[in-house]
Simulated scan of single mutants.
Amino acid sequence: MSRIKLTWIVLIVLVWAAMMSFGGVAAETVMLYPNIFGDAPASLDRAREFLVAGGPSDYFPPLGASVVLTSLAATALTWRNRRLRWYVAAAAVVFIACEFLFSVVFFWPRNEIMFVDPVGTHSPEYLRQVAEEFVAGHWVRLAGGAVTSALAFTALLRFARETAPVRVER
């Protein structure tokens, strides 16, 4: 397989995965979050009951891993091209910083408090505070997903322009 064809495939998968991740986070924002965080701690208890068969923790880790892996592969494949490398590398850095590292440091501890620790471990006031912090921090993740998707899509468009066959006027 040629390098150009491989780059095409990796960039398309990167854009698809980044947009799926961003779309999932955006959907969570408008469909799940009002129900999960709207009336803590009672809404957190309802969420525990509802999210038994599956939830965001089943969807986002594998999708996030695919964004990270394809963004790293795309960075390696486009590194020689100065006009593409920074879009792809920036998409990788933004996603890793806003989606992965920020989640590990900020969201995972709050998820433990709200959804893993036994009910009654924390006071209602503390649970409300944690829920408010979670929702406020969520905007960083949403913005990071939007920026990642835009950068990856821009790289794909630039690559398409560079590799498109040139039309010759008759």
Rank of each mutant, 00 (worst) to 15 (best):
Glu49Val: 07
Ala91His: 00
Ala150Thr: 03
Trp86Val: 07
Val68His: 06
Glu133Asp: 15
Arg46Pro: 00
Ser123Ile: 07
Ala27His: 11
Val147Glu: 01
Arg110Phe: 08
Ala136Gln: 15
Phe107His: 15
Ser149Lys: 03
Arg83Thr: 10
Glu49Thr: 11
Ile36Tyr: 12
Gly55Phe: 01
Glu133Thr: 11
Ser57Gly: 09
Glu112Leu: 11
Ala27Leu: 11
Gly38Ala: 04
Thr70Tyr: 01
Gly120Ser: 02
Arg83Glu: 11
Gly24Ile: 06
Thr78Cys: 14
Ala47His: 04
Ile96Leu: 15
Asp58Thr: 09
Val52Ala: 10
Asp39Glu: 13
Tyr59His: 04
Phe100Ser: 14
Leu32Gln: 14
His138Ala: 13
Ala91Lys: 01
Thr148Gly: 00
Pro109Phe: 00
Gly23Cys: 03
Leu151Thr: 02
Ala92His: 07
Tyr87Arg: 12
Phe100Leu: 15
Leu51Gly: 07
Phe106Trp: 13
Ile36His: 06
Gly120Leu: 00
Tyr33Gly: 06
Ala92Val: 00
Arg161Pro: 03
Val140Trp: 05
Leu77Val: 03
Thr75Lys: 01
Ser71Asp: 01
Thr70Leu: 07
Ser71Tyr: 04
Arg82Ala: 09
Trp108His: 12
Thr154Asp: 00
Val30Leu: 07
Arg80Val: 05
Gly23Lys: 02
Thr75Asn: 06
Tyr87Ile: 03
Leu101Arg: 03
Asp117Asn: 10
Arg48Gln: 00
Ser123Val: 07
Asn35Gln: 14
Ile36Ser: 05
Ala47Ile: 01
Arg161Trp: 13
Leu63Tyr: 02
Thr70His: 02
Val130Ile: 12
Leu72Arg: 04
His122Glu: 00
Thr29Ala: 13
Gly145Lys: 07
Thr75Leu: 10
Thr78Gly: 10
Asn111Tyr: 10
Val135Thr: 14
Leu156Glu: 00
Gly55Trp: 08
Phe134Tyr: 15
Gly38Gln: 05
Ile113Ser: 08
Ser66Asp: 10
Asp45Trp: 08
Gly24Gln: 05
Val25Tyr: 15
Pro109Cys: 00
Ala150Asp: 00
Val93Met: 08
Leu63Ala: 03
Val25Gly: 10
Ala27Val: 05
Leu51Asp: 14
Ser43Met: 03
Leu156Ile: 01
Leu156Asp: 01
Ala92Asp: 03
Asn81Asp: 11
Phe106Arg: 04
Trp79Asn: 06
Met19Tyr: 14
Asp117Thr: 07
Met114His: 01
Met19Leu: 13
Val88His: 04
Gly38Ser: 08
Met31Asn: 14
Phe100Glu: 13
Ala143Leu: 14
Leu101Gln: 11
Leu84Cys: 07
Val67Gln: 02
Trp108Met: 15
Val52Trp: 02
Ser71Met: 09
Ala90Leu: 11
Ser66Gln: 09
Glu132Asn: 14
Arg80Gln: 08
Phe37Ser: 06
Cys98Gly: 12
Leu51His: 10
Ala155Tyr: 02
Leu44Cys: 10
Gly144His: 06
Phe60Thr: 00
Leu69Ser: 09
Phe22Gly: 11
Asp58Arg: 11
Leu127Ala: 08
Gly23Ala: 06
Val30Ala: 02
Val135Lys: 13
Leu142Pro: 03
Gln129Gly: 01
Gly64Pro: 05
Trp86Thr: 07
Leu142Val: 07
Met31Gln: 12
Leu151Ile: 04
Asn35Pro: 01
Asp58Val: 08
Arg161Ala: 15
Ile96Ser: 12
